[in-house]
Design a protein around this nucleic acid. Structure first.
Lengths: 230, 230
DNA sequence: TAAATTATGATAGTCTAACTATCATAATCA
DNA sequence: TGATTATGATAGTTAGACTATCATAATTTA
């Protein structure tokens, strides 16, 4: 799933990518439009949730007619799934980058958790969107169209972490009795669920005034690391 | 917030409760109806989510006309909040029960976590409903009417756990350097987020076939306990 | 390049579900 | 018993997802 920016590609730009070369102009435009629509939909959904954003809003944001939007995405659900997949993609990409970093397994895990936290704090709305989507998806009568793609990216994210835990068990920085997959799921579950403002707000008011969410997340991380440290 | 069952109270039942005695018959009926409506709404929302359940459905389930339903709850949002509060209540009550149990702080915490897990596994839909509600609440333009009540119950739940952690620090079963409130938030965040079927399903297919969710939850618990054990 | 094909956007229309208004009837109260 | 209030049926309004139509524009192809 290639990301194409809002700016439409010009004809005279020299392309080396064969796949794009092969596409007819009409196909190219279509592909660009799909990406543009998804991009705008994601942006709007992240800010406002699914219900608040109307197909009309998305059409306007993408600069197209609503009828055209419906030709590309006959159901709002399809657009929601596409936006959710796009929203999850950067997490996978950044995780993969971190896996190829320097240092011991422990250091790399700590780095990736730090990064995860920063993402959570900086992009609270992204996390909230993800949670909203997963809730939404869980209530539909028949599985959302395209949901397999989403689940697959999720699985890839988890698989990215596996070698790291294995390394740590090997080099002795992690306890040898922990289960790799269960540990991975724990990480995702523990650190991936700070999107809901309501919980966040509730926690903030529950915690002392001078405890920032960042402090709490740091404590959470320490706690987790302590639990797997050898 | 008293819970009143579907079965309407009979006139001839001897009441000892003064508060109810003072109410006129009309007021009594109203109160009963409100509870009945909330009960049916909760039941339907838990199964089907907010969007799928129509005001008509709730009116039918409560055996009243839809116009009457709207007289009690002029906005669907109000009913959603009331159902969410009702949904959270049992968690608080059970937690409070466990606080008065026997044993060391460690044993009691373990017992409460076990119980929490069981609730998560047995009442997955309740947890899912809670997550859906919190997502929903986070996206509204102005705070949902009555949301303070919900937040307050949430806070009470967390406060219930505090003395337990303090006890554990005192009697030496927990590390002395952990922060009580942060630990409480960790517990809620870590163990309260298994409602989304999609995550659950994704995890199940990611984990080995023979790893049941229960096994994974148990591992999660062990991991957490290890992190705070002295 | 011209004809054929396909994509677009505007507009109007359908449908569903939240919400409102009305009113005759029934239950409660004084 | 007469006055007050609650109920439920019904019809109507509104918002937003989705469909149908069609004239026009862009692209393809012969």
């Amino acid at each position: 799933m290639t990301l194409i920016s809002t700016k439409l590609l010009e004809d005279d730009i020299l392309r080396t990518d064969n796949e794009v070369m092969e596409l007819s102009k009409r196909q190219q435009n279509k592909e660009e439009r799909v990406q543009l629509i998804i991009q705008e939909a994601e942006r709007l959904f992240i800010e406002n949730g699914f219900e608040k954003v109307q197909m009309q809003d998305i059409a306007d944001a993408a600069g197209i007619g609503v009828a055209t939007l419906f030709r590309y995405f006959p159901k709002k659900d399809q657009l929601i799934v596409a936006a959710a997949v796009k929203n999850l993609q950067p997490t996978l990409e950044r995780f993969e980058q971190f896996m190829h970093g320097e240092g011991s397994a422990y250091e790399r895990l700590e780095a990736i958790l730090n990064h995860f936290f920063e993402m959570q704090l900086e992009r609270t709305n992204h996390a909230r969107f993800r949670e909203a989507f997963e809730s939404y998806a869980s209530f539909v009568a028949s599985p959302l169209p395209g949901i397999e793609t989403y689940i697959d990216v999720q699985r890839q994210i988890m698989q990215t972490l596996e070698p790291l835990i294995e390394d740590g068990k090997r080099d002795g920085s992690f306890r040898s009795d922990i289960d790799v997959k269960v540990t991975v799921v724990t990480i995702i579950n523990t650190f991936g669920t700070f999107g809901n403002n309501i919980m966040l707000k509730s926690h903030i008011s529950y915690l002392e005034d001078d405890i920032e969410p960042a402090v709490q997340l740091r404590a959470l991380k320490e706690m987790f690391l302590a639990s797997i440290r050898a």
